[in-house]
Write a protein that binds this DNA or RNA. Structure first.
Lengths: 160, 160
DNA sequence: ATGTGATTGTTGATGTGTCATCTATCAAAG
DNA sequence: CTTTGATAGATGACACATCAACAATCACAT
């Protein structure tokens, strides 16, 4: 039996990129999350769900469609919705056409929450990320995201 | 009282970058974390602690120094160490010179764990990130990380 | 020596994410 | 019809992070 071949360790440049990757995101995101919590009393997960629902017709969406769109597991979304429902910002409704199915609906409180939160959140994103980087750096981020997204989609197709 | 001024919403290019940022990281990191868990039975938090301890003299470090180095809260580290200690991969020891202090020490099992895990983890990082991007993109990541790190350090100084 | 304040590390409560599992329903084939 | 398999969604157990409180110890001025 052959021993495992010597692994290709990261070069210095690769390490720099990898460490940047590992540190960058939690750092910036923690700041944005803190702002969001202080300004609007919402978590990032709350905000993400609310903002998707806020831009749909009738402020409602089939639960599994929402999970699909957000790339969340059903389980995660279900737990999240339970918490949000308890706080009165969304409501679940059975759907007539499918006995298994359910929809999430924004409540009035929910609409108010996302409406109030959005401008503050954009400002926060600008402060902590967008206005800090050059247009070239923003473009690089977008391109890197594209590459990774494609790779991910291709990979998932292979596994499904 | 003046109403809040109209917020500067994100341009399309800025949105692309922001969404890339938001999706990219969880996506890639989830894959790497899944690999790590399946290959080695470790979480990313486990791996981070083990790899720092693995590269210290005597495989041991003062707990608060470790927290400082990793930029973790003491609380977070303490909880994490409790879990790791229960699984036998690290051990806590009182330190003689300071009655309050304690050190973490890698156990034999812990050394074996990080030794076995490291090459698989590097391969995973390559597969999901490093080998997917061009050298230019890696460099862009490193530079963006630098900018954000500086901004963060400056900010924190202002708050401390 | 003693009181004051800072530091070290732990703990419990709470919110969150993942995984495996469960129920109910659907759709399609026999 | 009924069986069979897939799908929608919820749930419980667990790992993890954060926050506020806490005990023990230290350093140091009085």
């Amino acid at each position: 039996m052959t021993p495992a071949s010597e692994p290709r360790w990261l070069t210095e440049a690769e390490q720099d990129a990898w460490y940047a990757w590992r540190r960058m995101f939690p750092l910036v995101n923690a700041e944005i999350a803190r702002d969001l919590s202080q300004d609007s009393g919402l978590s990032e997960a709350d905000y993400d769900v609310l903002s998707v629902l806020g831009s749909t017709d009738g402020h409602r969406m089939r639960i599994s469609a929402l999970a699909e769109l957000m790339q969340w597991s059903r389980s995660r979304l279900s737990h999240q919705l339970t918490r949000m429902e308890q706080r009165g910002i969304v409501r679940r409704e059975d759907v007539a056409t499918d006995g298994r199915g359910a929809e999430v609906v924004l409540t009035g409180t929910g609409v108010a929450a996302i409406t109030d939160a959005a401008p503050l959140h954009v400002a926060s994103v600008r402060r902590h990320l967008v206005d800090v980087l050059t247009p070239q750096q923003l473009q690089a981020l977008a391109e890197i995201g594209e590459v990774l997204r494609h790779r991910f989609a291709a990979h998932r197709k292979g596994r499904d």
